[in-house]
Design a protein around this nucleic acid. Structure first.
Length: 571
RNA sequence: GCACACGUGGCCUAGCUUGGAUAUGGCAGCAGCCUCCUAAGCUGCAAGUCGAGGGUUCGAAUCCCUCCGUGUGCGCCA
């Protein structure tokens, strides 16, 4: 239920009729002016050609010819725009009415019933998740929440890479490196305990050909389907994965299901893909290894061939990924992948190869740029990383420090609870607010920003609203929205009215960064209202203002939840 | 070399899909605001060749071309 819909509809109908009367049957836009001069505006420039008149004159004429509209309080022409001011009382009634009725489902779109399979994270189980990779679950989980809010039936999935050299190398390290040869680790979590073996094994393999030979042998046995080796590798991957899952939980990311890459080897579907690709006219062979020549499909670079088997006939990563996607297509109407920008070429090749198999569908991809450190790229192998667990720990510690400064009345447990909400939220918000494709340089001071455009800013506004409502006691059963007439009240209500449109933008157009920006806008409008408009001492306007505070609380809570943040009732 | 992405005040960032009014916010800086619902807040000031150049258009941060800078990719790796 979008409170602004009826207003837009009425204006659209009236303007269409008026333009037609003036001799123009051209399409036009209804936009929210960036200047803030009006609630809605229709630019008259596109009509200039048809009517052979200046846009300003067209706007003037339309303004004078437009019939009075009951939902609009003022119509005027300005610089070629036809401007509309909506009727305050009716906006108030429609908005507060919708929020009170829908409560925590205010903003939700109509269920489309479409099944969406959203794959995100899927990091290699060779080490703890680091800040660079953390962009993936945050974008993925936030998008999943936005799409659910918009009305899709979303399932999130993690594709576990338990095949290949990296996990085999880790497994070899665990079996062959004595504990005293790796650096001591403080954390109990398995992923942190294991990653040092992975790093050490990498160094050993580079320096010692014998190690490289042993790892190669193990990989060989794995590729040959040696049950013992496969089970061992899977066990390592599982151990690491459990640590990763635990980390994800701290930022409120829960993944619905897991698919293991090795399954596509075991069940023969990857091999089946190979057999079908071999029949393609674009298939070639180079010393036993099979490839598709993708030059005719617009693939550029030094190598335009896309190999899908090794010389020994075993499958490659992308081949198994094809089998995985064919499986996904059977399970959902839409498939979305959240991927690092390094996967772009691979995904392009995958899409072409799927087409060559006669598959019409290809996955929709959201690519994000890597997060780097000021001193350069993050690498698990080299150990030049900031782990998510460390970032969260630091964020919570800083938040706790702030809570202690402000609140001396709370129990230790309650302070910890609030600090967790703030610290974890700040990390998610700071990543979600930036467009995925923008490069991001990780800086502690930005990641731990607790003021301005940040999670705590939005959470704080929510806590303030809760505080007023707590002190007010029982809410009045009825109120008159018409008494909310000062600039702060009107601005706040207009912000609340936009929420369904924001969910549509974030969920349908997959622009999740619109949601943090909106949360900031509502919180800022509320903070101004809070500063200048008394609520509890609001005299005859008290009931209506309490209703507005409650409506704001509901919208802020919805925004926070959809961003995967908690909405603390006190801070 | 080729391909893809990004470039917006000192720093970070919105707007670009679908061209339209005075380019959105934040951080840092400066100056103010707590006898009153939590100052993680509010108000004001200062700060911009929207990477550069050209083109399309009545109109370009937005579309097209060229160039520059940065990142990513171009494995019988995953």
């Amino acid at each position: 239920m979008d409170p602004l819909e009826q207003f837009e509809r009425q204006i659209c109908e009236a303007v269409t009729a008026t333009f037609r009367q003036m001799g123009a049957d051209t399409p036009f836009e209804i936009e929210v002016p960036s200047t803030g001069t009006a609630d809605l505006a229709v630019p008259c420039f596109p009509l200039a050609k048809v009517l052979r008149k200046a846009p300003a004159a067209i706007a003037e004429e339309a303004a004078s010819k437009l019939p009075p509209l009951d939902l609009v309080s003022r119509v005027w022409a300005e610089k070629g725009y036809l401007n509309f001011r909506l009727d305050d009382r009716k906006v108030n009634m429609a908005t507060l009415g919708a929020i009170m009725e829908m409560k925590d489902s205010y903003g939700r779109g109509n269920a489309s019933g479409l099944k969406v399979l959203l794959e995100h994270t899927s990091v290699n189980p060779t080490g703890p998740i680091h800040v660079g990779r953390a962009r993936n679950p945050i974008i993925g989980d936030t998008l999943a929440r936005c799409m659910r809010a918009y009305g899709y039936d979303v399932t999130t999935e993690y594709y576990v890479n338990d095949v290949g050299k990296q996990v085999v190398l880790l497994t070899w390290g665990l079996e062959n490196i004595p504990a005293e040869d790796v650096e001591a680790i403080e954390r109990e979590k398995a992923d942190h305990r294991l990653v040092v073996y992975y790093q050490k094994a990498n160094r050993m393999m580079e320096e010692d050909p014998e190690v490289a030979r042993q790892v190669g042998l193990m990989l060989r046995r794995f590729e040959d389907g040696d049950e013992e080796v496969m089970a061992k590798v899977r066990k390592t991957a599982k151990l690491m994965l459990d640590g990763i899952i635990e980390s994800l939980l701290t930022i409120n990311v829960v993944i619905d299901q897991f698919t293991w890459e090795s399954e596509f080897i075991k069940d023969g579907t990857a091999h089946n893909v190979v057999e079908r690709l071999k029949r393609s006219e674009h298939c070639g062979e180079d010393q036993g290894a099979c490839y598709l020549e993708l030059k005719p499909f617009g693939i550029h670079g030094k190598e335009t061939r896309f190999f899908f088997t090794r010389a020994d006939g075993t499958t490659l990563y992308t081949t198994r990924d094809m089998a995985y996607h064919l499986d996904k297509f059977r399970r959902a109407d839409r498939t979305i992948n959240i991927l690092g920008e390094d996967q772009k070429l691979g995904q392009a090749q995958l899409a072409i190869a799927l087409k060559l198999l006669g598959q019409e569908r290809s996955p929709e991809c959201v690519f994000y740029s890597f997060v780097s450190l000021p001193e350069g790229r993050m690498s698990t192998r080299k150990g030049t990383v900031v782990y998510l667990d460390d970032l969260i720990e630091e964020a919570e510690a800083r938040a706790l420090e702030e809570v202690r400064k402000r609140r001396t009345d709370l129990t230790e447990e309650r302070m910890l609870e609030i600090a967790r909400a703030i610290g974890r939220g700040a990390v998610r918000y700071n990543i979600a607010r930036v467009q995925p494709e923008k490069p991001l340089v990780f800086k502690w001071e930005d990641a731990l920003n607790f003021e301005g455009n940040s999670a705590p800013f939005v959470q704080y506004a929510h806590a303030r609203a809760c505080s007023i409502l707590r002190k007010a006691g029982q809410a009045a059963s009825s109120f008159d929205p018409g008494v909310l007439t000062n600039e702060y009240e009107l601005k706040l209500i207009r912000a609340l009215a936009r929420y369904p449109a924001v969910i549509r933008e974030a969920g349908e157009k997959q622009r999740i960064q619109a949601l943090p920006a909106y949360g900031h806008e509502v919180a800022a409008a509320f903070n101004q209202f809070y500063t200048y408009v008394p609520v509890l001492k609001g005299e005859e306007n008290r009931d209506a203002r309490l209703a507005l505070v409650n409506a704001t609380r509901i919208v802020l809570a919805n925004v926070l939840t959809t961003l995967g943040l908690s909405a603390p009732e006190e801070m």
